[in-house]
Design a protein around this nucleic acid. Structure first.
Lengths: 211, 211
DNA sequence: ACCTGAACACCGTTCAAGT
DNA sequence: ACCTGAACACCGTTCAAGT
């Protein structure tokens, strides 16, 4: 769980760091998912929750908390990918949920909608961080450099595909080509969070049976 | 690219199916990401885009298209995980984007906002499907059964953690405990899509430099 | 009882060699 | 030129055996 080089957390690596065989870990953990969840929960301690208790516009403070969360996951994108599958349940995760719920409450968002909104906000933030994870690349590669190169190549591929589109068959894409891939990733993420906050405040829950 | 048992698409499996060595694939594909993107693009042909040209409420038709997309990815959750990292750029993907943009346009959503909204909608749908993917489980396991068991165990863990929370330190979680984990996954996903559509329609873009 | 060495069943990617 | 066998460097998980 050290904060050194956990770019690529694996059972075998951790075991080696602990000077033992990989089998030993299975005394404490059932599988790799649990390992990832445990490390993520640890990392969640780095999320800056202070905006929740600060003063000022509740929306901006909520976005700040969510961007801090995204920033932490950005540093460890492989964990972000894992976080989509196995969410942690420890105290740091609960503190994060509490902070988000409190800010939505402060903003007058009904509790029921806020309950589902917090999940959607965290899912989006997690997915955004996960997107920047390198693929299943070769073991020895520099993860950062590879992710960068992949992102660049992908951006180019998407841009090319969009500009090559026939306006006759894809009129909406042609009409939107100016904005489809505009903006920095940071601008787009901030916009997405704001859109979800607005949507959460405006969208009532369907009739549901209590969990 | 056959639609048989591509639960766990790997370079080696595909090579074996083609009666050759794994090295041969690298003549056509640069890496596994590209393999996943190619298969996903193929699969996107199964998405039902007919609601885009039908009549009736544009929102419901948009949700229908997005749920069809989610349903396709649900059948191959490992590809959904891959889709977060490497989006396809083929004709089926372009047709999906065109359909979503057209429905948002029909609903009076400004083109610029629709441009960013389509990304957010697809990201959410993809992440929702990816959440149901099994972890990095042991090679031989039944993926479906394992994903089910994992989901069940996780739900239990989250439910327990939420109910064990101290109302004094986590008042908002305590207040929302009735709705936090309420609803079926289908209900929650439909709500999320509607919230994002509403948020997209209501959230103007910041001033951005054109892409 | 508690832990673990060694094995099993896989991976992605490269590169020297074959046709 | 085009393709590929074999190797390199990894994985997660299990289980029989050791202490």
């Amino acid at each position: 769980m050290r904060a050194e080089g956990l770019q690529r957390v694996t059972m075998r690596r951790l075991a080696q760091e602990l000077d033992t065989g990989p089998a030993s870990l299975y005394v404490y953990l059932a599988n790799t998912s649990q390992l990832h969840a445990a490390i993520l929960e640890e990392l969640l301690g780095e999320v800056d929750l202070r905006p929740a208790d600060a003063s000022g516009d509740w929306r901006q403070r909520l976005v700040a908390v969510l961007e801090s969360y995204t920033g932490v996951l950005f540093t460890y994108p492989n964990l972000a990918r894992a976080a989509l599958v196995a969410r942690p349940t420890g105290p740091n995760y609960l503190a994060l949920i509490e902070a988000i719920l409190a800010l939505l409450h402060e903003g007058g968002v009904p509790d029921a909608q806020a309950s589902w909104g917090v999940d959607l906000l965290l899912q989006t933030a997690t997915a955004t961080a996960a997107e920047h994870a390198p693929g299943d690349g070769r073991p020895g590669a520099d993860a950062d450099a590879e992710a960068d190169a992949t992102a660049r190549a992908e951006f180019h591929a998407v841009a090319t595909a969009l500009h090559a589109v026939d306006p006759a068959t894809h009129p909406r894409i042609a009409a939107a080509s100016g904005t489809l891939i505009a903006g920095t990733p940071g601008q787009r993420h901030a916009w997405a969070l704001n859109a979800i906050i607005t949507g959460t405040a405006a969208t009532p829950l369907p009739p549901v049976s209590a969990g």
